[in-house]
């Protein structure tokens, strides 16, 4: 009984043509010499991307890596300090960042000299004149400010006003 022809047999025959493709005569005599000349010349081959090469360099040179990291950190800190000075040049803004015991003061506890608008509360314990305030959502006036109701400015959030305040 005759076996059915293998469908890949023809393909394999066709692929055998590739085995007969030969480089120019003398190529394999010259190639080893070229390779040895390049090796003797200290030629190195690298197929890494610039990012991989940088990473390999940093791993290989830990002192240089630490120096670059310190430099980058210093630059970042300097940039942050410059940015903060530019935003609040006259205020002791550094205190606000360091003040971990900041508490919310009610208007009754606020210094007498502070002229706090009705419905506003203090956010920090900074010296008078540098306080940060925000509307007190638990007082009627504050809630009105908070929800932008009853002010002279247009009411852009009317749909969010509770019904007892809208009256």
């Amino acid at each position: 009984m005759e076996r059915p022809p293998d469908p890949s047999r023809d393909l394999l025959q066709l692929l055998s043509l590739k085995r007969h493709e030969m480089p120019p005569p003398g190529f394999f005599k010259r190639l080893p010499n070229r390779i040895l000349v390049n090796i003797r010349a200290g030629c190195e081959v690298s197929d890494l991307t610039w990012w991989n090469r940088l990473w390999e360099f940093l791993v290989r040179e830990p002192i240089a890596a630490s120096s670059y990291a310190a430099l980058a950190m210093g630059t970042a800190l300097f940039a942050v300090s410059v940015f903060r000075t530019a935003v609040e040049p006259e205020g002791p803004s550094a205190l606000a960042w360091q003040d971990t015991s900041a508490t919310v003061h009610s208007p009754a506890e606020a210094p007498a000299t502070a002229s706090l608008p009705q419905g506003m509360i203090y956010l920090t314990t900074l010296p008078v004149g540098y306080q940060r305030v925000r509307p007190d959502p638990f007082s009627a006036a504050g809630a009105a400010r908070f929800y932008n109701v009853g002010l002279d400015t247009p009411q852009t959030h009317a749909e969010t006003v509770p019904t007892h305040l809208a009256r």
Binding site: L12, Q13, S16, L17, H20, E21, M22, P24
Partner: peptide, 15 residues
């Protein structure tokens, strides 16, 4: 940039 076929290609039974 294909290489030339060698002389034996024409005599390969598969080819």
């Amino acid at each position: 940039s294909l290489n030339d076929l060698d002389f034996n290609a024409e005599h390969d039974p598969d080819i």
